[in-house]
């Protein structure tokens, strides 16, 4: 023990020369560092093989995946090249003991600066303009088609409520003063439009391949409505009514997550999304309205 300690602690160099001599110094560290730099992109690749987004299950989701995959490929390529260059430099220049290049001329500097400028403009800015903006427009800017089903989503510490408008297609008015144990959303009992509203707790049922418009509201604090497979994410802001729409194109059962910190139970604010064939969906809706 004491010997190891002594060996470890003896090395207090007080000059540059002293700091760069001795075992495991200089070249060997350069080689190790270079290897490490090469390892990083490789590790990224390994991780990526294991960790990918869940299979996409909505129409616009394919566009988001395209954006992500483009970035993975382009940026991943840059990552590889960047780390390879770093590795090469570290290895190469830790093996010489004389400076071989000192100052670039102003022109050379500017010429080299063009490389990252052009690369970033092409890869980052170009990528977003070509792949990103159209999907963004489709998800956020475009209006939902006329045949869209409308469902209201209400976030509450720590449950989800879903409300279907009923046969009249209208949501009844709500007000906070009507909220109690039996009336979780505070439906106004005097509003006829609310009589046939269907309120479901924790489970959202949707027909497959039909556009759905979600009206997102919160009863208390911020929440985040996240459907990983459908690539739908939208924060819910109390005091605002936010709408998003999408087309689920895979039937099946999925999970709904909350992704904006909302308090103690944030980690268990789980909902279920059931995407079902249109016929089944209508059946379910009719059964529950009667």
């Amino acid at each position: 023990m004491g010997v190891i300690f002594n060996i470890l602690m003896r090395n207090h160099p007080s000059t540059l020369a002293a700091a760069t001599t001795g075992p495991l110094q200089g070249r060997s560290h350069g080689l190790l560092l270079a290897l490490f730099c090469l390892l990083v992109p490789f590790l990224c690749f390994l991780f990526w093989k294991q960790h990918q987004p869940p299979p996409v299950a909505s129409e616009h989701g394919a566009g988001i995946d395209l954006m992500i995959n483009y970035l993975l490929a382009a940026v991943g390529g840059l990552l590889l090249v960047g780390h390879a260059i770093l590795a090469w430099f570290v290895w190469r220049f830790s093996r010489q003991d004389r400076v071989t290049f000192r100052l670039a001329t102003v022109r050379t500097e500017w010429k080299w600066a063009l490389v990252p400028v052009v690369l970033m403009l092409l890869v980052a800015e170009g990528g977003v303009l070509v792949f990103g903006v159209p999907v963004w427009k489709k998800f956020y800017v475009a209006k939902a088609p006329a045949n869209a089903l409308t469902v209201e989503v209400t976030g509450q510490q720590f449950v989800w409520h879903f409300r279907y408008p009923g046969k009249d297609g209208l949501f009844g008015r709500t007000h906070v003063k009507f909220i109690d144990d039996d009336n979780v959303l505070g439906l106004d009992p005097t509003d006829a439009a609310g009589r046939d509203d269907l309120i479901v707790n924790g489970q959202l049922r949707l027909p497959v391949n039909r556009p759905v418009r979600l009206r997102l509201r919160s009863k208390d604090v911020l929440h985040g409505f996240f459907l990983p497979s459908q690539r739908v994410r939208q924060d819910i802001v109390p005091g605002m009514l936010i709408e998003v729409w999408f087309v689920p194109n895979q039937a099946g059962q999925f999970e709904i997550l909350c992704t904006e910190l909302c308090g103690l139970g944030h980690h268990m604010m789980r909902g279920l999304l059931q995407v079902m064939p249109e016929r089944e969906f209508e059946q379910w809706l009719n059964q529950n309205h009667s």
Binding site: V99, F101, R102, L103, A104, T105, V106
Partner: peptide, 13 residues
Amino acid sequence: METVQTIERTEAF
């Protein structure tokens, strides 16, 4: 990788 020394640059500062 020849040694490039640019007096031009030193002067700029």
